[in-house]
Design a protein around this nucleic acid. Structure first.
Length: 592
RNA sequence: GGGGUGGUAGCUCAGUUGGUUAGAGCGUCUGCCUGUCACGCAGAAGGUCGCGAGUUCGAGUCUCGUCCAUCCCGCCA
């Protein structure tokens, strides 16, 4: 039996025609003499009626069984039409039934509402059932549409998609890699590509000029709701382009994706925010600008304060920052405690605060403040009744981090109380720019590339590379949406001499190591490397936000758990001794 | 590696101060039912309270360890 229609197709215009449908049994309603089966396929649901000799057979059907049905399309009695169903005016009067497979009872409900509450480990174990849920099916479709829009866009912009190797060489800088032992070269390893960075730059030297790729990337780092061990990047690189060119190009792509997927017109250009300003105002380099609660610097106010904790921090080169969690004065002891724990985990000694209730400032520290200081606070933080002010006194980056995090938690508490709304469909894109090219790593006592070592310095800062490396800004940019870093890129270094200098003189990578790891790149650059730049953008994260979730597991068909396991297929597993022997490797833990 | 939350029936959860035979809703199974669409009605089955120790006359409940899921920190050039 071949199906002639799908399950969202039949309307009164098909009346009295004989059609065949195939799909899954969504539900069975057995009334004894008459049985209704909701038949479901990818497109929708159609009601099938069994009241003939097929009744006995239909009575044996269970939910999620796979059947094919032939019958006549009939109009339902007027009162029996279902307005909630696109096919609700008609039903199929079954004359033939093929049972392809009777299903076991599913271990959890396959509805949107029921399935969302189920423990995720169960959903992952039975992912093929989870993916039958309408919401998950929709997520897969959204991902497809978004990916297609990206390909169409870059194609129209005359970019070409070039595939690059997943099996690359190990470059221990940056993210931890997955190693792949070589059978042919005993004792040697490939690494799964963390990103096509080096290949795409080489493609520029190769004269491709406009490259893009929907690229799978691999990183052996701990997983999060927005991080999987393998993930997909929209990877782009172009020659003869500057930062403004990248901004325009990429804003165009996002505009198209939002148009195609959500029929939403994204306003462009996106606002830009300097890294330093982002940190100062929001305490993070990926601010969520859908709500304010902005940080304020109070170092001037407390420079000579009688409150020694503040004054001495400032004297030692630190700063005092605060923000007003407007209307959160009714915070509970438990909530304050939780905020304090978070602050402490970020290096704070405590989390000072002032509650303002009934015109009175309630706080363990307010007794140390002078009237002038109080007046300054009131003015700078727009303090009113019902507010609570959180303070941090520490080094600049630590104070930013503490309050940046506290700001997000406070926002959640305000949302919980219904005093603030953070809409999932408000799209606050922004470019974060002017990152420092290098930052000093206290652990290894050397400079490390903030982004990656191929980022070009801002031209007017180039002179500072030797004298004051941390003052040099990179031509780097991040795309941020609603507090999530979606991507980043830079204009690259295309002069081999400058690249070599960055590796050896600034990052202090020994010359022989530079030669063995990046020698081929430096060599390529000596054969006419065009100026170029690009961006790498997290497809999974973007699709997640398009789907109204922040967990990329919801938009990846077969994701891993936080412990990096596939609960369905049950990977990873031990391998046989022969496999290990072929690969010339031994495990320290013996195979089981 | 560290911190938080959770783990009780197939699923989602409740379970009081440590005290009799561990409950509910949904689902499942059986029977009845020709107009339901979350069908209805009647009945039934279903439990290693994640696992292991410990305290106690007595542990779902308290303590310690451990496993799993999840959120976060570290980590993610």
């Amino acid at each position: 039996m071949k199906r002639t229609h799908h399950c969202a197709q039949l309307t009164p215009s098909d009346l009295h025609t004989t059609v065949s449908l195939a799909g899954w049994v969504d539900s069975v309603r057995d009334h004894g003499g008459i049985i209704f089966v909701d038949l479901r396929d990818r497109q929708g649901i159609t009601q099938v009626k069994f009241d003939t000799n097929l009744r006995a057979e239909a009575a044996l059907l269970k939910a999620e069984s796979v059947i094919a049905v032939t019958g006549k399309v009939e109009l339902r009695p007027e009162a029996m039409m279902n307005k909630n169903l696109p096919t609700g005016q008609v039903e199929l009067d079954a004359s033939e039934l093929v049972v392809h497979n009777i299903s076991e009872t599913p271990p959890f409900p396959l509805t949107d509402a029921g399935g969302d509450k189920v423990n995720e480990d169960l959903r992952l174990t039975y992912r093929y059932l989870d993916l039958r849920r309408p919401k998950m099916r929709k997520n897969l479709l959204t991902r497809h549409r978004a990916t297609k829009a990206v390909r169409d866009y870059f194609d129209a912009q005359e970019f070409i998609e070039v595939e690059t190797p997943a099996l690359f060489k190990s470059t221990p800088e940056g993210a931890r890699e997955y190693l792949v032992p070589s059978r042919i070269h005993p004792g040697e390893f490939y690494a799964l590509s963390q990103s096509p960075q080096q290949f795409k730059q080489i493609l520029m030297v190769a004269g491709v000029e406009k490259y893009f790729q929907i690229a799978r990337c691999f990183r052996d780092e701990d997983l999060r709701s927005d991080r999987q061990m393998e993930f997909t990047q929209i990877d782009v690189e172009a020659s003869f382009i500057d930062r403004e060119g990248i901004y325009t190009l990429f804003e165009g792509m996002l505009k198209k994706v939002w148009q195609e997927v959500l029929q939403h017109d994204l306003p462009t250009p996106f606002p830009r925010l300097a890294y330093h300003d982002a940190m100062n105002r929001y305490g993070v380099d990926k601010p969520d600008t859908r709500f304010a609660l902005e940080l304020v610097d109070l170092s001037d106010t407390f420079k000579t304060s009688g409150f020694k904790v503040f004054a001495s921090t400032i004297a030692a080169g630190g700063c005092v920052k605060a923000f007003n969690a407007k209307g959160l004065a009714d915070i509970t002891q438990g909530e304050i405690g939780a905020l304090e724990e978070i602050a402490k985990s970020l290096g704070a000694k405590g989390l000072a605060f002032i509650k303002v209730e009934a015109g009175e400032w309630k706080s363990p520290i307010v007794k140390f403040f002078s009237e002038a200081e109080k007046a300054a606070l009131t003015q700078k933080l727009s303090i009113a009744d019902g507010d609570i002010i959180f303070f941090a006194a520490a080094t600049w980056d630590r104070a930013c981090a503490i309050l940046g995090r506290t700001r997000l938690e406070a926002a959640q508490l305000l949302v919980k109380r219904g005093r603030m709304t953070i809409r999932a469909d408000q799209w606050n894109f922004l470019w974060v720019v002017d990152f420092p090219l290098m930052s000093y790593d206290e652990e290894t006592k050397r400079y490390v590339a903030t982004h990656h070592p191929f980022t070009a310095p801002v031209p007017e800062d180039t002179a500072l590379i030797d004298s004051d490396p941390k003052a040099v800004r990179g031509q780097h940019y991040d795309v941020v949406l609603n507090g999530m870093e979606l991507g980043g890129g830079s204009i690259r270094i295309h002069q081999p001499a400058l690249q070599k200098k960055i590796f050896e003189d600034v990052l202090k990578i020994p010359a022989d190591v530079v030669e063995s790891r990046f020698g081929y790149m430096l060599k390529a650059f000596t054969y006419g490397a065009p100026p170029h730049g690009g961006i790498a953008f997290g497809l999974d994260r973007m699709v997640a936000l398009l789907c109204g979730t922040t967990s990329i597991r919801d938009v990846i068909a077969f994701p891993k758990t936080q412990k990096a396991q596939d609960l369905m297929a049950q990977s990873p597993t031990p391998v046989t001794a022969k496999q290990l022997k072929d690969l010339h490797i031994q495990t320290v833990i013996p195979p089981q």
